[in-house]
Design a protein around this nucleic acid. Structure first.
Lengths: 317, 317
DNA sequence: CCAGTCCTCTGACTAGGGTCAGAAAATGGA
DNA sequence: TCCATTTTCTGACCCTAGTCAGAGGACTGG
């Protein structure tokens, strides 16, 4: 991270907050305070629990309540207790609310149009491409990795999605009972661990690590949600797992995988794994990989890793 | 401008306002209201007139005054009337103010670092490159073109800079008295016009157009400030002049230029000009160009123009 | 069935950021 | 000289966005 990079980022921040920020307030805050507009937007067409709204926007419960009352007074929303749990209340947009939200939507489009407007066709295409890149990388930077218990709801969500995906993608389908599935205890300290990637609090990927004493560490059940692919998450998982395996004194990391997972296979290659002979008799595996790993040097989360990127459905079941 | 582009711009806006915006307030608003911080920053190390501050930040005079008083109370600035015009007051940072500004600067660096921090080396490089592109194009989009009188201070500034630059770049130097200089009347309606490009209110380029009745329109004195090159301004000038010439009923646009201005020459080629035989005896010209132009179809400022980009020192004296 | 917890709401309060209408001083042109 | 204009300052306001401390209804485990 050199001074020129820092300088460029700062210039970017200035330009963007000026240009986008000003237009943002101008277009979106036209009739309605920004807080209400944000809330109206977040409620969505389906409606939302107040609790979730608070969580997603990171707002004080009192504040949300007040905003909702204001929207209710304008006839834009209705708030009703949930039948199953009458403490939780659900907000729904009325027809007027839906119309208002649509207007907001149109204004967001206008705003975007105002940014592109003064440019010619080629410049527009370049701007949009660069924005996509910035967007993708900034999003990637907000993904957090945490160790969670395999029974945590987020973990279960990811593992279920993982099984569903490989069941569909493996040529032979996938039957969990015929695979060498690690049970939860194997992915729970001290025998191993399970990482969950979260984006804005939502689980978007998982990766397990087995740490058998006296044997190579093993990557298991690496999966990245379709929405979160292209963010370099697979690589980041591998880097994190490698660092953690090293910290536990392992000098070899290995994994097996199915031939259908081509993106994962090329990730393993590019990340420095070597294909080796089968080291287990997993019936769904076609490839076995191994990588020698070094003693830990820097903190795991900050450690840079080699360049490149790859799809992210991952290490064998 | 299609729906997918709009959608991407909106996604960009969301991500950026979230990520940059949140960090911005977190880092910069730490001890001090954002308004004061902005002002402190804008005063700069040299000091500033209150009037200019107000102008540049687009703030109410009362508000600025209040902010200044608050900074003064904290011992960060001193405000003194200008000797020449005692209505205008000049703000200068005290030593404490300079220190505070430096601290602010450091925090801006931290902020930029926080954006890059979670990424690996390759990702950082890509993010910075994409940010530079977005920055450049958004900046380009904020440049305005206006017709001004050749005697307007901004026009004089550009023309002076233009002469200074060609004097330096022409192999033989440049002596205005030996060139076919159009006088001010030729670049003033109805005989012609002079466009000034402005970025944040500062003049950053000019381009003149002669509209002799019954003869081809002629581009004169096209110049773009060094800071503003690479924004596609040269091309934009040409497109604007072409549209205006067409609107005045001209069907040919021509210009002459010096061989030292290579970037300009390639711009003319790529914009669709054909090199032709000398149509005047300008002693500083080596190349003469001509382009057939069409009747106007759409509004001049929004009309898209062919792709590409080029440097922008321009059409002959 | 009851004690503790969860969820939402209410009232009271704050800071920031900004607008508006003059007032006062300085200047410039007729 | 006098009057209009420019520039800054002051006081009186406003709204938004939020925080904090309870109150009270609804649920849950023992």
């Amino acid at each position: 991270m050199d001074a020129a990079q820092i300088e460029q980022v700062r210039r970017f921040n200035r330009t963007v907050t000026e240009r986008v920020g000003v237009l943002h307030d101008h277009y979106l805050g036209r009739d309605r305070p920004v807080g209400e507009a944000r809330l109206l937007w977040e409620i969505g067409e389906q409606g939302q629990d107040v609790r979730r709204l608070r969580q997603r926007l990171g707002l004080d419960s009192g504040y949300v309540s007040r905003l909702l009352r204001s929207l209710e007074a304008d006839g834009l929303v209705t708030v009703q207790p949930q039948p199953e749990d009458r403490r939780v209340r659900t907000v729904r947009l009325t027809d007027a609310g839906l119309a208002e939200r649509a207007a907001l939507d149109a204004r967001s489009d206008e705003l975007a149009g105002a940014l592109l407007g003064p440019l010619n066709t080629a410049q527009r295409a370049r701007l949009v491409a660069a924005m996509a890149e910035v967007d993708r990388l900034l999003t990637a930077a907000t993904v957090t990795l945490d160790i969670v218990d395999p029974h945590h709801p987020d973990a279960r969500h990811c593992l279920r999605s993982y099984y569903a995906e490989i069941q569909e993608r493996f040529e032979t389908g996938f039957d969990p009972t015929r695979s060498l599935l690690p049970d939860a205890a194997e992915l729970r300290p001290p025998h191993g661990l399970l990482l969950i990637a979260r984006l804005h609090g939502e689980p978007v990927g998982c990766a397990g690590l087995k740490l058998p004493p006296g044997a190579p560490a093993e990557v298991k059940r690496m999966w990245v949600a379709p929405d979160a692919r292209g963010l370099g998450l697979g690589r980041r998982f591998l880097a994190e797992l490698e660092a953690r395996a090293a910290k536990h004194g392992h000098s070899v990391l290995r994994l097996d995988t199915n031939k259908a997972l081509t993106a994962a296979i090329s990730l393993y290659h590019s990340y420095g794994f070597q294909e080796v002979a089968a080291f287990n008799d997993e019936r769904y595996a076609h490839h076995w990989f191994e990588k020698r790993i070094a003693a830990p040097l820097t903190t795991p989360t900050q450690r840079p890793c080699p360049d490149g990127e790859a799809g992210s459905v991952g290490a064998g079941p």
